[in-house]
Amino acid sequence: MAFDQKYASYAVAAVAVAAIPLSFVGPEGLRLVVIGLFLLAGPGTALVMLLRFGSPDQVEKHSTLPLAIAIAVASSLALSTIVATAMVFARMWSPPVAVLLLSLITLGLLALGAKRSREALVGA
């Protein structure tokens, strides 16, 4: 599981980093796929990877997977919505800046998750 989580973290980080330049420039199709995927699940996946759902036993992990996916998607959508709405009301509308902000949040959450995993390993 730790192996999977490490590579999942790399994938989320890669999408978050790629989304930053693509929010300024790039082929339309590629921008839609990468940024669409990032706004749909990026920040939420980083958040879910930071959290510890229940006990680490395999049965519980399986039964919490739908909840983890649901929270990953819904929290990404909610966070993107809140950032976009705040920008509109603050009259500071800039989609690339919003993507940059969300990418930084995602990378920050991933870093926190990695630190927490390391601490857990040391504690064990």
Binding site: G26, T81, V99
Partner: peptide, 30 residues
């Protein structure tokens, strides 16, 4: 525009979802 027009219709008074779609459109260039 990044602007709301709350007097135009009710949608602009609850714009969250449309702000999100605007973000998708603005950030992807689609």
């Amino acid at each position: 525009s990044g602007q709301l027009d709350p007097n135009l219709d009710a949608y602009f008074n609850w714009p969250g979802f449309f702000d999100f779609l605007g973000l998708v459109s603005g950030a992807t260039g689609v």
